[in-house]
Amino acid sequence: MELVEAIILSVLAASTPLLIAATGELVTERSGVLNLGVEGMMIVGAACGFAGAWLTGSIFIGALFGIVAGTMMSLIFALMALGLAVNQVATGLALTILGVGLSGLIGAGFVGERITPAVHLFIPGLTDIPLVGRVLFGEDGFVYVSIALVLGVWWFLYRTRAGLILRACGDNHVSAHALGYPVLRIRTFAVMFGGACAGLAGAYLPLAYTPFFIPGMTAGRGWIALALVVFSSWRPGRLVVGAYLFGAVTILQLHAQGWGVGIPSQFMSALPYLATIIVLVLLSRARSGGSTAPAALGTVFVPDR
C-alpha cells in the first residue's frame, strides 16, 4: 500500500513540470504560434529559479525568477517570429540553443549548492488519510498550481470571449485581422504566457524535484512537453492525461532500475523518448481523417495595410 502511494506521489512529481510547460505551449499554439524553444525557456527558468531561491532563501521568489526568465526568453522569440516574421521553427531552435548556453552561464556559480526544497502541504487529519491523504493533501505548491493552471486555461479558452478570439487567431489569422482583432498583439501575449509557464516548469526542477541545479537538468522535458501538446490534440483535458501517462513512464523506468530488472539502465532511460515517438506515430496515424491542429499553426503573418 505504501509503495502504491509512493509511486503515485512520484508520478505526480515527475508529471508536474511536463504539465505546466505543455499547458503554456498549448495556449501559444492555440494562437497559431509554434514555439519550439520550450526546452530553452525551461532550462533558463531552472537556472534563474535556483539562483533566485538560493539568493533569497525563498522558493516562492525562486519560482517568480523562473517565470520572469521564461517570459523574457519568450519575448525574444516574439520579437523575432512575430515582429520580424522569421520562420518559427528556426527561431524556436535558436531559442533552445541560446537557452542552453545562457543557463550554463547563469547556473555555473550554483553547481554543487543545495537549497531546502519546496515544502509539502500538511493538513492534520486530512494528510494522514491512508493512500489518498498525501496524494491529495500533501503535495508541494507547484502541483496544485499546475492543476489550477490547466483548469484556468480550459475555462479561458472555451468559456471566455478572449479565449475565443485567441483560438480564432490560431485558426485563421486573416479573418481575425479582417474582423479588427490585433492578431500580433494577441499572439505576443500567448507566447509570453507560454514562456512564463515554461520558466515555472523549469524552476520546478531545482526547487522541488531535486534540491540542486545541474546543467542540462531539463533533459529534453521541454521537447516532451511539445509532443504532449500534439498528443492532447490541443485540448487541455487530454493534456492532463498525457502528462500523467508520461510521468508514469518516467517513474516506471526509475523503479524498474531499482528493482534490478535485468535490462541495462540506459535502455530503461530511453523509454520516455521512445514512448514519445510511438505516441506521436499512433496519434498522427489515428488522425488521418483530418488534423486537429490550429489551422494557422506555425505560419507567418504580416498584416496588410
Binding site: 529534453g220 521537447w223 509532443a227 515517438i277 506515430v281 496519434l283 498522427s284 496515424r285 488522425r287
Partner: peptide, 13 residues
Amino acid sequence: KFGASEILTSLML
C-alpha cells in the same frame, strides 16, 4: 507514412 512531426521524433532519437 503517419504524419508524425519529424522535428520531435528526430530530436527524441
